[in-house]
Design a protein around this nucleic acid. Sequence first.
DNA 1: CGCTGTTATATTAGCGCTGTGACAAATTCT
DNA 2: AGAATTTGTCACAGCGCTAATATAACAGCG
Lengths: 162, 162
Amino acid sequence: MTNSDPTARPDPWQALHKLLAAMDAEIEQVYVERGIEGVRPRFAYPLIRLAHTGPLTIRELAESLDRSHSAISQTIAAMRKEDLVTSEPGPDARTRRIDLTERGRSLVPFLEAEWRATHATVAELDAEVPYALTTVVEELRRALEHRSMRQRILHHLVEPQG
Amino acid sequence: MTNSDPTARPDPWQALHKLLAAMDAEIEQVYVERGIEGVRPRFAYPLIRLAHTGPLTIRELAESLDRSHSAISQTIAAMRKEDLVTSEPGPDARTRRIDLTERGRSLVPFLEAEWRATHATVAELDAEVPYALTTVVEELRRALEHRSMRQRILHHLVEPQG
DNA sequence: CGCTGTTATATTAGCGCTGTGACAAATTCT
DNA sequence: AGAATTTGTCACAGCGCTAATATAACAGCG
């Protein structure tokens, strides 16, 4: 047995992960309560975006949403199964034009409303706590850009003489 | 086309998810650089805990780490394959005593050092930004306990007249 | 012109993190 | 004995990622 257990208190990580997970779960619940079937939370972002941009290729959509094209490809595949989008071959035979179906388009108004409500909620929360989460995250991103997490950890790392 | 695209700017969510993922990735990198093979990040917490508590059952360990017993069961299974823990049937035939192997135990000092370094880094970051992330998260948790995310969203939700 | 190698696009397989729910087995209670 | 509870496992789901694979397009060169 070494000294005291460093894992005795819950780490901030876990807490953050849990918080995010809980929030995500409640957002999804709003969908479910609305009786929207087959629309997973991760569909919302692409659907709304497509409604505003018109047809896009996988790559374009991925860049637009700041996700990997692979992730979007899979999301689109799932959405097609739910008849939310179509995927016609594009002008270039190696691209495909992703567009909304009628069903997909019909859901957008609600999804947008929900999106706005969620963001309004985040803003509301930011006002309730002493310092906006949004801002803190941004500051952290900047701090880590300046000096990476890895570097910082290594600097603090006191190797046990093994 | 409705008004402006509400998804035009990246949402704080995504930003937070990405930040967490990036940090996690860098932590893992520290492991890899140390040449520790077969020890996934999620192993660290259980290993360290076990080193301090002595043998525990799956259930006990799960509660101790505030995870689902199922998740821990799977983690333990993975750790056994890496010869990090043993799983002897406990006093009760339906329980199993999870204990460290020699190899598992030998890794604990480094894992603890890394753990402390990471937490020191978090503290350092908390000092660099205007308001500690740790605190904000805690405050948020409290705010949501008082009024759930779902309630808040529903309150802000302006239904489009469909 | 036609072959070759590079680039761009999309898909797929596999992995990571986690969770829930169904299930078998063992124990405990009635 | 029969029913209820507890424990652990497994199958499956969600989110995302990378790496490897086809396919198509393009550039270069003989």
